[in-house]
C-alpha cells in the first residue's frame, strides 16, 4: 500500500516539474599546444532530477584552429573522430557524455587513460567549495545571474549561475550551486564555457543513464591508474631512446591536476 502511494505521489511530482532545459555551450580550450586548441560545442539537457552534458564530435572538427590542415579523418564505432593534423600530430575527438543524477548525488563520465583507453569514472556531485560573491550580479541571456568562485583541481574558476532558470545544474563537472551555471571560466583562460542558446521545454525525451552496463571506477582509482600507465610509457620510451641521458614525463595540458608528479628516469647509468 505504501509503495502504491509513493508511486502515485511520484507521478504527481513528475508532472509538476517536468520542465526541461537545453543549453548550447561554446567551450574554448586554450591549451599549451595550439594545434589541439580550439572551440567546441556541448549541450546540456536537464530534466527532473537528471542531466546529461554531451558533444557532437562532427561539430568539434569545425571548431579546431588547424582544421584546414587536417587530413585522414576516421569515424570510430563509439562516435569519436580521429584526425591527423600535420606530420606529427593527431587528435581524437571523443564523444563525451557527463551524466548527473541529483537524487543519487552521482556524476558519471567518460575519460581516457594513456595512451588512449576509454574509461568510465564516477564521482560525487559535491566536488566544489563555492563562494558566492555578493553585489556582482549580471544578466546573461536575459537571466539574472549571481557570481561565485572556487578552486578546483589546480585552477581558479569564476561562475555565473541563475536560480531563476533552474535550481541546480551546470556544464561539464561543474555543479553544486543553488542555481544553474550558465557561464564559467578559469581565471587563467585555459577553460571557458559560454552559453549560446537556452531552450525551454523543447525536448520530449527522458534522460537515461548511458553507463548502466559499464564498469565505473572512482576518481582516485583513475588518477592512480593514470600514473601507473604513464610510468609504463616512460619505461617503454627509455628502452627506445638510448642516446638520451634523462627522460621525464610530465602532464602539462590537462584541465584537472591529477596530482601526478613529474616522472624522471635516468637512462645512462
Amino acid at each position: 500500500m505504501k509503495n502504491i502511494l509513493t508511486f502515485i505521489l511520484f507521478m504527481c511530482y513528475s508532472v509538476i516539474s517536468s520542465q526541461n532545459i537545453k543549453i548550447d555551450y561554446k567551450i574554448t580550450l586554450n591549451r599549451n599546444s595550439t594545434i589541439t586548441s580550439g572551440v567546441s560545442f556541448y549541450y546540456l539537457l536537464l530534466k527532473n532530477n537528471e542531466s546529461v552534458y554531451y558533444n557532437k564530435p562532427e561539430d568539434d572538427v569545425k571548431g579546431l584552429k588547424h582544421k584546414d590542415d587536417a587530413f585522414d579523418k576516421k569515424v570510430k564505432q563509439d562516435g569519436s573522430i580521429e584526425l591527423k593534423l600535420g606530420d606529427k600530430h593527431s587528435i581524437t575527438i571523443t564523444k563525451d557524455i557527463f551524466y548527473k543524477n541529483y537524487l543519487k548525488d552521482t556524476l558519471i563520465f567518460n575519460d581516457f587513460l594513456p595512451p588512449s583507453k576509454k574509461v568510465i569514472v564516477g564521482e560525487s556531485l559535491n566536488l566544489f567549495k563555492w563562494k558566492i560573491i555578493p553585489k556582482q550580479d549580471t544578466t546573461i541571456l536575459t537571466y539574472k545571474c549571481q557570481k561565485a568562485t572556487c578552486n578546483f583541481r589546480g585552477r581558479k574558476y569564476v561562475a555565473y549561475f541563475s536560480k531563476d532558470l533552474y535550481q541546480m545544474g551546470g556544464p561539464w563537472k561543474f555543479d553544486g550551486l543553488p542555481g544553474l551555471i550558465l557561464y564559467i571560466y578559469s581565471e587563467d583562460n585555459y577553460f571557458i564555457i559560454e552559453p549560446q542558446k537556452i531552450a525551454l521545454n523543447q525536448s520530449q525525451n527522458d534522460i537515461k543513464n548511458p553507463y548502466t552496463k559499464d564498469k565505473i571506477i572512482t576518481w582516485q582509482e583513475y588518477a592512480k591508474i593514470f600514473e601507473e600507465k604513464l610510468k609504463k610509457i616512460a619505461k617503454l620510451m627509455k628502452s627506445k631512446f638510448k642516446e638520451f641521458d634523462k627522460l621525464s614525463v610530465k602532464i602539462t595540458d590537462k584541465i584537472e591536476d591529477l596530482q601526478i608528479e613529474e616522472i624522471k628516469l635516468k637512462i645512462k647509468e
Binding site: I16, S18, Q19, L141, T142, Y143, E194, P195, Q196, K197, I198, A199, L200, N201, Q202
Partner: peptide, 15 residues
C-alpha cells in the same frame, strides 16, 4: 506551494 505560473511553453533564447 506549487508554482502555477511556470508554464511549459517552448522558449528559446539565443546569445
Amino acid at each position: 506551494p506549487i508554482d502555477d505560473i511556470k508554464k511549459l511553453d517552448e522558449v528559446v533564447i539565443s546569445a
